[in-house]
Structure formats: structure tokens, C-alpha cells
Design a binder for these strands. Sequence first.
DNA 1: ATTAAATTGTAGTCGAGGCTACAATTCTGT
DNA 2: ACAGAATTGTAGCCTCGACTACAATTTAAT
Lengths: 139, 139
Amino acid sequence: MTEHAKQSLPHRRTRHDHSTELAEDYVEAIAEISSRDRNCRIVDLAKYFGVSHVTVNRMVGRLQNEGLVSTEPYKPVRLTAKGSRLANRCRERHEIVYQFLLAIGVDPQAAAIDAEGIEHHVSPETLKCFVRQTKAKQC
Amino acid sequence: MTEHAKQSLPHRRTRHDHSTELAEDYVEAIAEISSRDRNCRIVDLAKYFGVSHVTVNRMVGRLQNEGLVSTEPYKPVRLTAKGSRLANRCRERHEIVYQFLLAIGVDPQAAAIDAEGIEHHVSPETLKCFVRQTKAKQC
DNA sequence: ATTAAATTGTAGTCGAGGCTACAATTCTGT
DNA sequence: ACAGAATTGTAGCCTCGACTACAATTTAAT
């Protein structure tokens, strides 16, 4: 009975995470594309994620509401300071997870895919452990 | 350019995973509740996940379509052979991830939460590496 | 046995994320 | 400069997972 309460919390958390995952993926992608192509357009994101430009459009609007992105009609998308900070945190976290998977012997291709899925579900504490492990392996 | 194709694949995969995650959570929960209470009812699942019984109801219908579950109106929910196999695989995988997190030094509470989020995104290969690591730590 | 409570089912709504089709704007090449 | 291509925006639809409100069935208690 009381177990139900304990159980339902993680599950709720998992679902709520889904709503932030996309935002994180977007700022990460915007940062990457911007640094590569000088600016980031809707089409670039659409190709990157393999979705229609319409989907990207609405998502960018949402990111703008959340203050992560700034853009004007028919103009490229830029990250705000807040968005950049989030993107950096995400990139670092992504890299940590990826390097960690490599360090424990996962092959690069599988590591790339799994890191993509795992990164959003790693707490700061677990992340620290990943770092420690990766360092230990490198000695 | 060709990078776009490479990039979009993992992201597509991530999204598709979401649709299977819930199914996996459900069979896991049904297995757990069934073994504890002798049978598993809609209400139990609703409490377990902290959602309404209606949500559970439709989800159970979907699981039935997928042949993972068998049930009749106003009757408890039972796993099919296929559903049981999936539940077992999920439980094992969950346990591996959880024990692995403990082994690398994550505290039990954080490990429980993170395992919940991570388990669905771990490829068989990465899982093997987790097992190997956990064993290594125990020596 | 009948009523009250618990459980399950159904109808209808909502937001998120996806799409197509079409309109508007900006960019480009000649 | 201007037509055609590329890009972006808008309208409207779909599916899925969630909900409330209400109807139906089963279980339990007196």
C-alpha cells in the first residue's frame, strides 16, 4: 500500500522527464548546428531530427516561451544566455555518459545510441560516479 | 550533411522507445503485483502508477492487442506467456542496471530513480558491460 | 436478498507532438 | 529586377496518454 506511493513517484518523474528531454535535445542541437554553420535555421533542425519543419516551428516557439531561445519570423534561431548554459550542461553530460560507456567497453556505435537515450535520466550524483569510473579506467 | 542522417537515427529511436517504455513498465508492474496479491486489477495498476483507472484501462487494451496480456471485462489482468517473458527480461534488466549503479557507488535512493529512467535505453551490449563491471567490483 | 461500496467500462475533452497542404516571405541566379 | 527555389508560417488533422463525469457490473455487508 505505502509501496504504491513510493513506486508511483519514480514513474511520474520518468514521464515528466519526457517533456524536458525534447527541450534539452533542441538546445543541444541548436548549439551544435550554430557552431558548425554559423547560424541555425528551422530546416537544419528538421533535418537533424528527421521531422517536419512545422514540428520544429512549434517546438521553437515553446523554447522561446521558456526563454531558452530567441528568434524572429523568418530569421534563424539563436540560443539565449540561459539556453546556452543549458546546452553546455547537456553537452557535458552527454559527453560524460558517452565516454563512460566507452570506458566500460561498449563499442562506439552502441555507446552513441545508448548515450542519447540515457543522458536525460542520469542524476547529478550518478554523473559524478560516471566521471570517477571513467577516470579510474584511464589509469 | 550526411551527418544529419546519422544524427536523426538515434533521435527517431529515442522517440519510438517511448511507446515501448510504457508497455514494459506495465508488464513489469503486472508481474510484481500479481506475485504479491495473487491477481492484478486495474485499480492496483492505477495506484501503482499514480494515474486514473481509465488510463490504465486503455493501456491494458493496448497490451492485449499486442498479445502481452489477457483479460475479460471486469476481470483481473493476467500476463500471457509472451507478456511473462517480457516481464522477466525487464525485471532482470532493471536489476542489472540497479545493481550496477550501486556497484559504482550511487546511493540506493538515487540508483532506484535513475535505474527506472535508464533501463529502457540500455542495449543488450551495454547491459553485458554493466554485468561485467558489477562482477568486477564485487571481487 | 438487497443495498451500498468498490471496481470497471464508456463518452467526451485536453495538450503534446507528429503530419500534410497551402500561404507568405526571403534568397538566388540570370 | 524578377521569376523560381528555398525557407518559414498557418490551418487543420491525427494519435497518444492523461483527465473528469457518468454508466454498468461485481463484491461485500447487513
